[in-house]
Design a protein around this nucleic acid. Sequence first.
DNA 1: GGATGTGAAGTATTTCACAGCC
DNA 2: GGCTGTGAAATACTTCACATCC
Lengths: 220, 220
Amino acid sequence: MAGVPFSPEDSRDEVPEVVVSRLPQYLRILNRLMEDGIMVVSSQQLGEKLQVTPAQIRKDLSYFGRFGKQGRGYSVRDLLDRLRQILGVNAYWNVAVVGVGRLGRAIVNYPGFNPDGFHLVAAFDINEDVIGQDVGGLTVHSLDDLRRVVTERNISIAIVAVPVSHTQEVVDLLVACGVRAILNYAPIIPHVREGVRIRNIDPVLSLQSMTYYINSSVEE
Amino acid sequence: MAGVPFSPEDSRDEVPEVVVSRLPQYLRILNRLMEDGIMVVSSQQLGEKLQVTPAQIRKDLSYFGRFGKQGRGYSVRDLLDRLRQILGVNAYWNVAVVGVGRLGRAIVNYPGFNPDGFHLVAAFDINEDVIGQDVGGLTVHSLDDLRRVVTERNISIAIVAVPVSHTQEVVDLLVACGVRAILNYAPIIPHVREGVRIRNIDPVLSLQSMTYYINSSVEE
DNA sequence: GGATGTGAAGTATTTCACAGCC
DNA sequence: GGCTGTGAAATACTTCACATCC
């Protein structure tokens, strides 16, 4: 489908997903340069900090426009603004957390989301004992209230930290309620329909992909 | 370097990194099939569960050998054993945690590492106030003891959960003490020398790579 | 002089498609 | 008949290299 080779509509430039996945890293570095008072940066310098080739950075950025000045490099502030706009992180996002067990609590208390514009504004659980409780400043709602709260608070992003056994159904419910992006901490890869985004945080998978290399290799 | 096209040594089959990164996911699914009492599985069925093409699974596995039976599929138990062996997760790994602040404590108390053979056996911090404390059953050591403990307990994997300002130096110290794989939770990408593996857990980057898609798109 | 932006070249990865085997 | 394993084809991604501009 959508694979007719000569379709003229096909020439709408699709940005490769791998390119999009690198932009937040560029954002990170630029934020740090900004804090350090650096005004201008070259793709060469960015590449050193990110451990990628300068050509890749220039190519990546070229999907979105021409942000640099020949002979000079990139204005840190300008590039920062453009990338924020492209990624859609120039505004605040309201985020719901589902599951306030040990992991969910750690997430709610993690101070790293707010500075980057992700506001955890609602918490949910299925366990009657914790519903109504205060967790990190948020009142825990019943999942029955999900649709209402998601609508009222204009939530399109959710973080899922429920047991594996409930993950897929929670994800389905979130999608049904209009959530369009999900960050999943359960060690399972849930299925979502086209148009909904999901990313999985799974430290064990990361560890297991490293043991391959340190296991047999003498040094590589 | 290593790029001479005709070098005969070049033909030692290098397994693409992207292939290795998928193996732990195969392991996950197979473990679940095993628990469910499924004995045999086809690449078709695996593909459906993993949302990848059957061809990719067969190709990935073919880098390591021929594990299937034509006309039948793969023995779940056999494939599980082979993958465990390939990934080096058929034995236990001792793991150190550096940084026992809020995040570090959550990691130490996370129950998901042990069942997969990663044993958190030592915790470290630089803060005098927490050194000597008990955190999740582990006594917090000073970083001064790192080399000794890493050697004594045969630790080659470390989890880093220290502030950004200290991350690079902690990583450097770990590498200097012989640690060969690092799971980093700080929002920075530390540099490590060739031969040392590092993976980064950065939920904000994940969120930012999703907002790109839910921001402008009507549906994609 | 120095750095960007970008077609073209070069690699890497995925998918196809089918021979071979159970 | 059904499914694996795998060269070959197709696609995706990265890097080169240079015209272009500040």
